[in-house]
């Protein structure tokens, strides 16, 4: 067998494995969620009752879906302007300067910090700060979680968008400058139209990460099983309730937690599909 063939087989097996693992995951999630499907059907999606007390067990995912979407959207809203300006700073305005190199290193550093560290920092520093400026009496809830999530996803959005901004061909920019365009006009009329699909993709990726983030959110959201009523209300998220209750759950509760896992999988898939669609439309 020649080396080319061996490489072909290795590549084939590696890709096959990915498919197998993903397929296996979907299958086990489905199988685990079947008792919950049978018991609650579609009502699972629109009920916000989560009562594990034996004898009156009742499960619904709405409050967790709401908490997940609220925190993630808030995170995206906060992260968007920050990430956009930082990526312009690194990729265009101060491109190839020492300052840009330093900022870019720190952005990469932020991306590498484990989420438990963000959680601890949020709990010991950010939360007391929010209490001290009087935004919220105890500091737990949607706002604090959204803020910590925003800080966590900024590096993802930044490094990807700045790569695409840097990839905009120099000839185009030079042509625009030679026609007398200002820097802002170049950004608006040359760089953005060329890089927007990559920039959008980076935000979709960042949003996906915010959806699935568990540890840091668990420490800050308050884990109260209610639909959030405002920015400073407590709540709970899908990933957080799974992490919290999985260990001691059995029967219908376990099945409902697995169904929430499946829903999270579905929501992430939809977000990714929407992202791909947007990229296709824009490119």
């Amino acid at each position: 067998m020649n080396s080319d063939k061996i490489l072909k087989y290795v590549l084939f097996i590696a890709s096959l494995l990915i498919l197998l693992i993903a397929g296996g995951m979907i299958y086990s999630l489905f199988r685990g969620a079947i008792p919950s499907f049978h018991q609650f059907g579609w009502k699972f999606l629109i009920s916000s009752k989560w009562d594990p007390t034996q004898g009156r067990e009742q499960y619904g995912a709405l409050l967790f879906i709401a908490g997940t979407l609220f925190t993630s959207i808030l995170a995206l809203v906060i992260a968007l302007p920050m990430a956009f300006s930082t990526s312009l700073f690194i990729g265009e305005y101060f491109r190839n300067t020492r300052m840009a190199a330093i900022v870019s290193t720190f952005v990469d550093l932020l991306a590498g910090i484990p989420s438990i560290i963000y959680g601890l920092w949020g709990f010991y520093v950010l939360r007391p700060f929010i209490v001290s400026i009087g935004l919220s009496p105890q500091g737990y809830g949607i706002f604090t979680s959204g803020l910590i999530l925003a800080i966590m996803i900024i590096p993802y959005a930044t490094s990807l968008s700045n790569t695409t901004i840097m990839m905009v061909p120099n000839e185009l920019k030079e042509a625009a400058y030679s026609l007398g365009a200002t820097r802002l006009e170049v950004i608006w009329n040359v760089i953005l139209p060329n890089a927007r699909s990559g920039i959008t993709a980076s935000y979709v990726l960042a949003f996906g990460r915010a959806l699935g983030e568990t540890l840091a959110v668990t420490m800050l959201i308050g884990n109260a099983n209610i639909i959030p009523t405002g920015l400073f209300s407590t709540g709970n998220t899908m990933a957080s309730v799974i992490a919290n209750q999985f260990g001691e759950a059995s029967g219908l509760q376990l099945s409902s937690l697995i169904e929430i896992g499946l829903l999270l999988f579905v929501i992430t898939t939809i977000i990714n599909a929407v992202g791909k669609f947007i990229i296709k439309k824009m490119a």
């Binding site: 594990p52 105890q138 308050g222």
Partner: peptide
């Protein structure tokens, strides 16, 4: 109103994970 179990439906307060939490 609440009953007993390893997890119950709390009607007040905030949750934290584990004894250390």
């Amino acid at each position: 109103k609440i009953g007993s179990g390893k997890t119950v439906k709390w009607i007040a307060g905030i949750g934290a994970k584990g004894n250390p939490g």
